[in-house]
Write a protein that binds this DNA or RNA. Structure first.
Lengths: 243, 243
DNA sequence: TGCGAACGGATTCTATAGAATCCTCAGGGT
DNA sequence: ACCCTGAGGATTCTATAGAATCCGTTCGCA
């Protein structure tokens, strides 16, 4: 019998085109795997066979391995040397923790931004946010997500890009950006929370900005956890894995 | 003329034997690069040429590339696709930030540990700590560092291993474990701070444990920043890079 | 029947080669 | 003097092959 247990694996889906061909294969594969895990095509504690995945994606084993290395250091998969990479199981507590840290870092960055952003900067943020609301009303989740990302990016990059940004990205990347389109109430919550952040930024009130951003992140975290429960994405939920 | 500017690079030093041959080359190379950066053999914003490094270490380019991928996602080096990997510059603010996050996470884990560790567990911790003090008195920094690591490990793993632990490791790994031996006052500070942590854990007081551990991490962070300033490891300090 | 050792297939891991890309520099035109 | 263009070399990036390792199974033996 074959070594891993011979599961038919998951149905091949095409590589993400958000990351088009000017990006490296490693990054595209990593994005693909991240999404496959979040969607449920890959479940813990299943092994990810490099060659099989390489065949499915039409690439060689090397970039697949590189992608899994990255994912390993992000905690998405676990690398067991000379045995392979297996998707890391995730609990509701893990997601909460992830957003707890995210809230902490994003809060700190927002506090710094409050002392650095000009009135015009905040005005631009508000304009982007208005677009976001229009996109959401029009049901364009893709555009909604992109605008949301842009808002947070400007705030986070206000205080220069450093280790905090890197760490924040690590916690954020875990859930693919466009996945939020599936989360009920996400756009609504963002629309509501952002205003508090903008007001604090405008007033130059660092503590208020920190508080508002922290609350926002935790809010989104709660919504995501509820959603994942509904989809049975967690370990204990209904559909348990193999054995 | 050669592309990177043709610096003679850094003098070859042997691979870390802390990670012996049962580990993968990728990990060993990563550890090597981490240390080379911390020690100053590699400085921002210098490129790390994969083949050159591979030759120096006597391995091929593939594991080197894998190592740099990992280091990239940790924020130690920056990957510029189709151009190469360059060591990320680091400011004093970055180190402070790193330890701020580390303090937050370690504090949370300590708080959880306070509710989970038994009296015997804490007794064992105290025993290990006593060994640590003896090792330090004997001037055995290697053993001191190892015992210190063991103490923190038991505390962090008390609440089961999850995403928080992964994130904590990311912030911790930035500075190689045995580097602390060079930091003046490190062992002394640890000896002092640990007692507060133990007392809180023994009392099962989560908040006190969080506070003690947070203070400890920030304390170490301060010491490290001072040390790095003395060694001129930061960007603005005396010895600036190339141009 | 129960247990240990060796075999065989599968997979990871490292090395190496070739294609694609980027940078530098020289040369010619405006 | 300035810009554009193209050649050449160096380096990254992907693919592929071979060595090392692991797992499941079977065979031999008590």
């Amino acid at each position: 019998m074959t070594r891993g247990g011979g599961k038919p694996a998951f149905e091949p889906r095409r590589m993400p085109d958000r990351l088009d061909e000017r990006h490296q294969l490693s990054e595209r594969v990593a994005a693909y795997v991240r999404e496959a895990i979040m969607v449920g095509d890959l479940r813990a504690p299943e092994f990810i066979r490099t060659e099989r995945l390489a065949d499915q994606l039409g690439v060689s084993a090397t970039p697949v391995r590189e992608a899994l290395m990255i994912l390993h250091s992000e905690g998405v998969v676990r690398w067991e040397p000379r045995r392979g990479f297996r998707v890391q199981s995730i609990t509701a507590r893990d997601v909460e923790d992830l957003f707890e840290v995210q809230a902490f870092i994003a809060g700190e960055l927002a506090a710094r931004a409050a002392q650095l952003l000009s009135a015009e900067d905040v005005a631009r943020l508000r304009a982007t946010h208005a677009e976001l609301e229009r996109a959401h009303a029009a049901g364009d989740t893709d555009r909604t997500e992109r605008l949301n990302h842009e808002i947070h990016r400007t705030i986070n990059r206000a205080g220069g890009t450093g280790r905090l940004t890197t760490l924040l990205n690590l916690t954020v990347q875990y859930v693919p950006r466009h996945y939020y389109g599936r989360v009920d109430g996400w756009a609504h919550a963002s629309a509501h929370d952002h205003e508090d952040v903008f007001a604090a930024l405008e007033a130059g009130d660092a503590d208020a900005a920190r508080a508002a951003m922290t609350a926002h992140a935790k809010h989104i975290g709660r919504l995501l956890v509820e959603h994942l429960h509904r989809v049975h994405a967690f370990d204990g939920d209904t559909e348990q894995s193999v054995s």
